[in-house]
Design a binder for these strands. Structure first.
Lengths: 228, 228
DNA sequence: ACCTGAACACCGTTCAAGT
DNA sequence: ACCTGAACACCGTTCAAGT
């Protein structure tokens, strides 16, 4: 999608909400959270701000639409084999969101905002519904359905956001390995008496598989749910 | 703290980083995330923007300092009875953060930002260290120490943020009960075939105890950790 | 209906000047 | 060292005017 949007600054094709959202995603991916401005948007789309406001209520709505589009795509991409267990589906959903957040790190802040916005919008409800159905299929009693789903969803989104941050590192010129090595060394040099956790965990930090560790967290929560 | 800060707009007392941070917290509590502006800050403190920049590098640092101060206080407030089990300590830490976020809902976005900021700052490391030590005491093997702690921390912060949003409701003029009732009704009216989760969970929404449900999620994850 | 682009109010930040 | 406050660059948003 990114490449397609990139080479279409010709004003011949009509302005549309979809094209605005696509461009917004591209700007956010390229320049980060602060990269989405109406100035950048109008330049890329070769229009004035008024034209954009004709398709989109305001910046907040635009950010919401961009988030919705990506999350809906991520949730739709699933194997759905008939032999899949609820655990399998939950892992697939989690990995779909993991990849989406990895590709679009700005989703973290956006999703956090959507989750802590009282009357949940479509995306938040979609994620909970998707995971919740599987938790139900897992045999969780109705009383613990929300609690269990909540634990899963918060981990799924939170850990994915943390991973995306690690994957990016400080700057683009530092490799992930170099970056994690620097952090691990810093942690290892902390006083083991005051920071035993950081000290212990520093070793794993160097050579762990991101997805494996991510899925291990999900399995841990699933164990808590299915425990009789 | 809020009241004390409120009645001190006299310029007699010297400007200090601490007083600026206190005022920032007060503005954020009163007017929300958007309430913290240098204009509001200078009016309350009866100075110019330059004076504030003499104590604080920029707005981001100010927000970070405000977050650090509140989280540090929340983490320090703990019973620490000698008979306390690791589970007890984790619950106490979780409730401390729960209350802090409930009182200062803007902490949610701020903490989410701090957690997904590659080289963790003091606060993020503090929270992980605090919880991680107890997870270790729980007997978790070193390999799963980070995973288990991660699951707990993301739930602790994520669910607390969600609760704070519910507690506030849409506007200040709607009671929590009324608000939850409206949401529950909306969910119950959804198509049970398409939204079985929302439909099932709607009932609990009306009359549940926030803290109880929050702690139930922590216990669920603890079960996953301690399962042999 | 859709687009233009100047104008507006507001924002964070800077800096020469003061004490 | 600490503070002042005008000035700057930039931001989201509006709106009369065009097609």
């Amino acid at each position: 999608m990114a490449t397609q949007t990139h080479r279409t600054p010709r004003r011949t094709e009509a302005l549309s909400r979809e094209r605005i959202v696509e461009t917004a995603v591209d700007l956010l991916d390229t320049a980060g959270e602060g990269g989405l401005t109406f100035k950048a948007l109008t330049e890329r789309l070769a229009t004035g701000p008024g034209a954009i406001y004709h398709h989109v209520a305001n910046k907040e709505e635009l950010l919401g639409a961009a988030t919705d589009a990506l999350v809906t795509t991520a949730l739709a991409t699933e194997p759905a084999e008939p032999s899949a267990t609820p655990q399998d589906v939950i892992r697939a959903v989690a990995l779909g969101l993991f990849d989406a957040i990895d590709e679009h790190p700005w989703l973290t802040a956006q999703l956090s905002k959507k989750l802590s916005h009282s009357p949940w919008g479509t995306v938040a409800a979609q994620i909970f519904e998707r995971v919740g159905q599987q938790v139900h299929a897992l045999g969780a009693p109705d009383e613990s359905l929300f609690t269990a789903t909540s634990a899963l969803v918060h981990y799924i989104l939170g850990a994915a956001g943390q991973n995306a941050a690690n994957a990016r590192g400080v700057g683009a010129h530092v490799s992930r390995a170099e970056f994690l090595d620097t952090v691990a060394t810093a942690w290892q040099e902390l006083d083991p008496d005051e920071y035993p956790f950081a000290h212990t965990v520093a070793r794993q930090l160097r050579d762990h598989d991101d997805r494996e560790q991510y899925l291990a967290g999900i399995d841990l929560i699933l164990r808590g749910i299915t425990r009789d």
